[in-house]
Design a protein around this nucleic acid. Structure first.
Lengths: 235, 235
DNA sequence: TAGTGGTCTAGACCACAAA
DNA sequence: TTGTGGTCTAGACCACTAT
């Protein structure tokens, strides 16, 4: 969805959260929103789609757009790709860098990253915490071809923001594979769990907008502190 | 996405799979597709969005729509909601009914299903197999209010198709929560694993298009036979 | 029957990639 | 500079809900 539609969705969300619609549980009609914000129906429908995907509202044809009841608990959206920091704007998100080294791809990694063997890559291992709770232990590789420089200071912040704003990279899409894995000794120690404990594992391949892979990662999630949420339309 | 857009996406996908674009790895331009199929740009872009979400193509602004390399392995899309049968049209999907009973909600289930305590519900326990491999052990509850009749014959087929085509229910959306759980004795026996083995657990709440919950389920997935796939745009 | 969201068209202009 | 996909508008008609 576009910036304009997301901004409009934010404005509408603030009205929802203020309780403006809590009597009827219903948003203004599309025509009213067009009128109120001076935009086209395309934008209004885009904004409503953003809110629907986020699980905030559900549109019913012929009837209106209804506000959904609040969900309890804190979950990570499984489909977002801008990192934990963007998912939890209100929370204290800390990335502790456990390793940062410039190495080279072995055969297996080169195959996964669609590059030559011995290609220079940054290897970054981080423990991610939300509100002081360890949430994930992430091992990531970044092709030096696209990320020429990296240091601990940058890696302890939002790497994606650095790459986008400072390096000018434009992201395209990510592939994720989700499965169960078991914690090794070091991962368990970092997450405060026992070796051999199970974890949700998300393997993530991230591509630039030109279709080139620039980042692969292997992320182990704390089985208690991390839960995932996904909302899907059934049409 | 709409039926028309999905059908158009299917036509384009068949051309991709036939190898028609394998030289350039590039789809015809939007204008060419408009011309070829006699539809508007809206429909063409919708069809391309379907293919992009499915991980088949990626559009690059200013350049074209490119065919993605094939992915290896069999993964379940994490966001679809029409059941395993729809996800694997080419495979042998079998549902073995292990329990089917008309019971009543206890306090906890009533809270989850947003209904009264002691409301009549069908409880259905099924083992789902794909190509003779056990994939998931699913416990589901259906409110009798919306599903007045059910039997083993229906439950061993596609329940969703039955509800949609025979009962005339219209689906809206589902909420999923994904986390790790451990197999109990019975689930382990059914899946051919050991008690205490970990499993990906997806708790699924399904709503009708009018926003009413009609189905809750608790699904345990075989840690080896079931892997999930998710593709996300990073814009 | 009136009102609402869903689909579709035609056309404009913008941002970006590649020549 | 040209051609591509991305955003946005205006307007039409359809499918469905509610009365």
């Amino acid at each position: 969805m576009t910036v304009k539609q997301r901004e409009l969705a934010g404005k509408i969300l603030r009205r929802i959260e203020s309780g403006e619609f809590s009597e009827t549980n219903r948003l203004p009609t599309e025509d009213q929103l067009i009128e109120q914000y001076g935009v086209s129906r395309y934008c209004v429908r885009g904004a409503i789609a953003v809110l629907a995907e986020a699980g905030e509202v559900f549109p019913v044809r012929g009837s209106g757009v209804f506000v959904r009841e609040e969900r309890d608990g804190i979950y990570m959206p499984i489909s977002t790709s801008y990192g934990i920091a963007a998912d939890f704007p209100d929370r204290k998100v800390v990335s502790q860098v456990r390793e940062l080294a410039l190495t080279r791809t072995d055969e297996k990694l080169a195959k996964r990253m669609r590059c030559d063997v011995d290609a220079p890559v940054w290897r970054v291992v981080r423990l991610r915490c939300v509100d002081d709770l360890p949430v994930s232990y992430e091992t990531a590789w970044y092709l030096k071809e696209y990320v020429p420089f990296l240091n601990e200071d940058i890696a302890s912040g939002s790497l994606y923001r650095y790459m986008r704003d400072d390096l000018g990279l434009r992201f395209g899409f990510t592939d994720k594979v989700i499965h169960v894995d078991w914690l090794g000794a070091e991962a368990a120690r970092q997450l405060g769990l026992k070796e051999g404990d199970p974890a949700i594992c998300i393997e993530d391949d991230a591509f630039l907008s030109n279709g080139r892979l620039f980042n692969a990662s292997y992320n182990l999630y704390h089985y208690r502190n991390a839960r995932f949420y996904s909302m899907a339309s059934m049409r």
